[in-house]
Design a protein around this nucleic acid. Structure first.
Lengths: 200, 200
DNA sequence: GCGAAAAGTTTCTTATAAGAAACACAAGTT
DNA sequence: AACTTGTGTTTCTTATAAGAAACTTTTCGC
C-alpha cells in the first residue's frame, strides 16, 4: 500500500462498551476533586444515583447524563464512543498540496481535504475566492456548528451577521458560530485562498 | 467596542431546552426517509418508544439515545446543546497575523489563535518548528481526540506511530487520531510553520 | 367516497431508574 | 478503643421508561 495514503476501511467488530460511561464520569468527578455529594449537588442529582452510575449499576437517563456533563464540564462526543467501523482510532489521512477533492459553487472553488477518513469530525477544506467587487456580495451561508478560517493568501473581506465587515489578509484567522450568516469576497486583484475547518 | 475583537462574555440565562432532543431525532429519521418502525428496528427499539421520544413524552435513557445516534448517524455534540454562558452562538473571534497568544515548549513555538472564545470546541494554533536534524526526534505527543495539520511554509517530516515518516511541504495536510503518538521536525534550512486544529 | 394498508399515537403492563434512608467503612480525635 | 465525621455503597420505595397491543390518523387505490 502507498505509504502516503494509508486510510484503510477495515471492518472492526462492534463491542458493547457497556462500562465506559461510568468510568469517564468518575474520572471527571475526581479530576475536579469532588465527592459524590458535591458532584451530585452541582448536577442536581442524588449521591446514591451518581454512585450507581459510576459503578455501571444502572443505565442513567439521557437527562441525567446531560446534567452531569454540564456540571463536570465533560467533553460530550467521547461519551458516545462505541467501537465500530466508523471511528478513526489509530488512523491518519494525508492530502498533498493541490490533491484535494474539488467541489465547485458559483462563488467558491472548494478543495476538500482528507476525504478518505469519512468518520472524522472536523471538515477541512481550502477555498479559492474569485476576485470581484465587494458590492457583489449576495447571500449568507448558514449551517449548524462552528467554523475556523485562516487566510492563506490574498486579501478579502469577511462578512458575518451582526458584525461589521472584517478586512483580512494572509495570516489572519477567525473563529465563529457558523449558524450566523457568513461569507467572504476577495478584495485583492488576485483570487484569495483560505483554509476552513468546519465542525458540526 | 473594537469591531475586530468582539468576543463578549455576556451572561445568558439558562433555558431547559427540554424538547430539543425529540425534534432532532425526528429530523434525522425523516432525513433518512425512515418510518418509526424502520428506524426503531435499526436502533433496536420499539416504534412506540421512538414515537414518545420524538414527541418529548418521555425522557429516554442514555443507552437508547446512543443507539439512536448510531443508527441515524446523528452528530452527537449538538444533542447536548443547552443555552448558557458557555456557548458561542452568534459570536466570532478574530486573531490577526502574528497576534496569537504565545506558548512555548522546547521543541515548538506555539501561537494560540482565537483564545477569547473560550467555549469553542476546536483549538487552532500555529507552530513554528525549529530547523534541526531528523535524527533529533525524541518523544511522541499523545492526547485524546483528533487533529488536522496544514503546512503553511517550510519542509518537515511528520511522524506517526504505526506509520512511516511522512515528508511534507507547504500546502500538504494530514488528519489523524491524536491518540496515536505523533510529532514533527523541520527538514528545511529554515524553520517550518504549520497550522494545527485540535479537537477533543 | 369507501375500504384497505401503512404510519403514527395512546393505552396498559412490567421492568427499572432515581432518590431517601439505612448501612459500611474509613480517617481523625479524644 | 470508642466516638465522630465524612465518603461511598446498598437496600427499599415510588416514579417512570420501554415495549406490546389497541387505537387513531393518514395515504392510497378503486
Amino acid at each position: 500500500m502507498d505509504p502516503v495514503s494509508q486510510t484503510s476501511e477495515e471492518e472492526i467488530v462492534d463491542t458493547p462498551d457497556a462500562d465506559h460511561l461510568g468510568k469517564m464520569i468518575r474520572e471527571a468527578r475526581l479530576k475536579k476533586g469532588w465527592t459524590l455529594e458535591e458532584a451530585g449537588k452541582a448536577a442536581g442529582i442524588g449521591r446514591s444515583t451518581l454512585s450507581k452510575i459510576e459503578n455501571n449499576q444502572t443505565r442513567p437517563s439521557f437527562d441525567i447524563v446531560r446534567r452531569l456533563t454540564k456540571a463536570l464540564e465533560l467533553r460530550t462526543p467521547q461519551l458516545f464512543v462505541q467501537s465500530g467501523p466508523s471511528d478513526i482510532s489509530g488512523r491518519r489521512d494525508v492530502t498533498l498540496a493541490g490533491q484535494g477533492e474539488p467541489q465547485d459553487t458559483p462563488t467558491y472553488f472548494h478543495e476538500l481535504l482528507c476525504t478518505e477518513l469519512t468518520s472524522k469530525r472536523m471538515f477541512p477544506y481550502i477555498s479559492t475566492i474569485k476576485a470581484r467587487d465587494v458590492s457583489e456580495f449576495e447571500s449568507w451561508i448558514r449551517h449548524r456548528g462552528e467554523e475556523f478560517m485562516y487566510v492563506i493568501s490574498g486579501e478579502l473581506t469577511f462578512f458575518t451577521e451582526h458584525y461589521k465587515p472584517l478586512p483580512m489578509k494572509a495570516g489572519d484567522s477567525v473563529y465563529y458560530d457558523s449558524g450566523m450568516g457568513h461569507g467572504c469576497v476577495s478584495t485583492s486583484k488576485e483570487d484569495a485562498k483560505v483554509l476552513w475547518v468546519s465542525l458540526e
